[in-house]
């Protein structure tokens, strides 16, 4: 028996109000693989992830998680079922302390507060130094680490990462991608939306490029690379 894909979108259309953002998008994230979703701004990458996490309900098409049809499931139900999305920009509660943020991560994954802290601080010792500080006062990199710690402790089957490098210094990006690599090693299936194509393609098993709400191409990371620099910078890169 074949293992079903960890995540599958079949002909998904979705949007906000009257404006349709996704037009019949289909993609498969095979179990245990890293799938990079690239493309210019406004192409619908974030919306695709929001569909996968249940935040946006598709107007047409199907969403399957591990072979199960889950259209219409609420984000919190999907989170408890093993889908974890780290949203673009701010993935932390700014007016909660670091420790209180970690307490929130106990809703999915079944760890105790102590275990959550232990695992997080082992991975990001810097956060341990700032445990009593409000998350909103952390640096951008530290906030993103705190956001990513949810991926470590929620023990997800499918991890959806939305531009985790946005606005961060290269060194921090490198550290975060190290973590992405090791999560992939553990067998978590990853769907990765990234503006930095080179960074993402270096860890990806598969990649797709979206433009104008459609999948423009799917392939091996190498094939996609050339296509992407064309789409971003008009072919000069």
């Amino acid at each position: 028996m074949r293992t079903p894909p960890a995540l599958e979108l079949v002909g998904v259309s979705a949007g906000y109000g009257r404006i349709e953002v996704l037009h019949e998008v289909s993609l498969q994230v095979p179990a245990g693989s890293v799938f990079a979703l690239l493309g210019p701004n406004g192409a619908g990458k974030s919306t695709t992830l929001q569909v996968a996490s249940g935040d946006v309900v598709p107007t047409a098409g199907c969403l399957h998680v591990a072979g199960t049809h889950v259209n219409g499931s609420s984000p919190d139900a999907l989170a408890r079922a093993g889908v974890c999305r780290i949203p673009e920009g701010r993935g932390v509660f700014p007016n909660l302390t670091v420790v209180e943020n970690l307490r929130m991560w106990t809703y999915a994954g079944g760890l105790t507060p102590a275990e959550v802290q232990e695992r997080t601080f082992a991975r990001f010792p810097k956060l341990g130094d700032r445990r009593g500080q409000l998350a909103g006062t952390l640096s951008g990199g530290e906030q993103q680490m705190l956001a990513m710690s949810r991926a470590i402790v929620a023990d997800p089957d499918v991890l959806l990462l939305d531009e985790i490098s946005m606005g961060l210094a290269p060194l921090v990006v490198a550290e975060l991608y190290e973590l992405v690599g090791s999560l992939a090693q553990e067998g978590i299936s990853l769907l990765l939306v990234e503006q930095f194509a080179r960074t993402a393609l270096a860890v990806a098993d598969y990649a797709a490029v979206m433009t104008q709400g459609r999948i423009a191409m799917v392939g091996q990371p190498g094939d996609v690379a050339d296509f992407v620099s064309e789409a971003y910078l008009g072919g000069a890169a």
Binding site: D55, P75, D76, F93, M104, Y107
Partner: peptide
């Protein structure tokens, strides 16, 4: 804590499974 979290960002609270 979850009450305060919902004040901050309800959609993130839902993503965390609450």
């Amino acid at each position: 804590i979850a009450m305060r979290a919902v004040v901050d960002d309800p959609s993130l609270a839902a993503l965390a499974g609450c």
